[in-house]
Design a protein around this nucleic acid. Sequence first.
DNA 1: GTCTATACACAGATAGAC
DNA 2: GTCTATCTGTGTATAGAC
Lengths: 235, 235
Amino acid sequence: MSNDDKSTDYQSYLKETSFRKEDFYRQAFIEDCKSTRIKKEKVAIKNLEKIFEATFRICTRKGFQGMTMRDLSMESGLSMGALYSYFATKEELLNTLERVGNYQIGILLNESVAKVKDPLDKLRVYIRTHLYISEMLQPWFFFSYMEAKNLARREREKYIQAELNTEKAIVDALNEGEKKGLVRNRDHQLAASVIKAMIQDWYLKRGKYAKRGTTVEEYAANIIEWIESYYLQTV
Amino acid sequence: MSNDDKSTDYQSYLKETSFRKEDFYRQAFIEDCKSTRIKKEKVAIKNLEKIFEATFRICTRKGFQGMTMRDLSMESGLSMGALYSYFATKEELLNTLERVGNYQIGILLNESVAKVKDPLDKLRVYIRTHLYISEMLQPWFFFSYMEAKNLARREREKYIQAELNTEKAIVDALNEGEKKGLVRNRDHQLAASVIKAMIQDWYLKRGKYAKRGTTVEEYAANIIEWIESYYLQTV
DNA sequence: GTCTATACACAGATAGAC
DNA sequence: GTCTATCTGTGTATAGAC
């Protein structure tokens, strides 16, 4: 068992990451608003923030299909007309949210493990980073998971692909670890599914963990303990 | 590590359990249709089956809010009028589905562990049974999880309570096991959350596991292996 | 760029014949 | 008990003033 448990805490991660929430809205502006009448990036970012935050608040309670554009207008403080100058249809709002989120998160995950060499450390860093990112963007993660089935075919496939990429990253680290004799021979594919489920539970049941006072660092350490018990135990 | 791994497989469980799918529809009839014009139980059960199965099929794709009563009419083969003679409102259909499911599953879970004494065996049986029940009623489990947020306050609280009961059953078994010196001292509450997440992943990602050819017995054995690694390892 | 007012389709729900 | 036809409210989306 390694002693790297003094590794980055959540606050440090927030300071170190290049990501700013603004990037999220800027990306949405670039992808979606170029063809609309909205031209000023600054204005767009301010309003996209209002729209996205309102969408998350409403959909947490009643889901995307249950949210009406009137709801969104009220909650965001923008008129119906203004909303439709940012998104051609309600469905496009959904697609943009999923697409931009997946894009941003893909960047963040890749940059996190790039420099780590040891496969076991790589796995630890990957899990911790994944949890930190999901903590930072919890509303998006929850929304994305719950609404994935409502996406159009093409976007839904991208979502599933992103899920599988996460699993693959874990499987690869485990395979490499086994080859180097660092971990036991197990069904890595199945293990990766289980590990992914543990990670997802953090953002799917955020309220429960908050109520109990569990911190994201504790949760990360706990998952890693599970994995070490499962993989480092002598036979 | 115990040697009870020759325990009940899924097919045996199906044969042994007292539960029949008909019970589900009968319960719904008793609770919901007494005040309607529908009087013949046999007719009611036949149609409630059509309605429930159609609801699951549609909602897996687009969620309850995205399902229209016309969709449901088409898919179930009943007319709009007929549907409304079984349920006063669309919302009542949702509430009935959740309520009846929770009720039936509560019965099944309780009867499964009643006779087991050893706390570790109790935990193993509980997990295996939970997975078998969720396999038997997968569409319901998926639906229930995804639509819980759309429930009215009262029903939603019951759902959350049922979730917590599952966790409590696991925590109790672990506490008892620790008292008897059978398992390590760990954060049992947090462990129970993680174990629950593993169980839920089975019915939330049913398609993925089917594609990979993972059986429910394999999945159960795997979860139990994780738990034994985490709890039985010598310090 | 943002608003108000409005078009128009479609949703949930019911009446009443059979 | 089940159907078809229909009512009425609400949802998405747009037009056009400012």
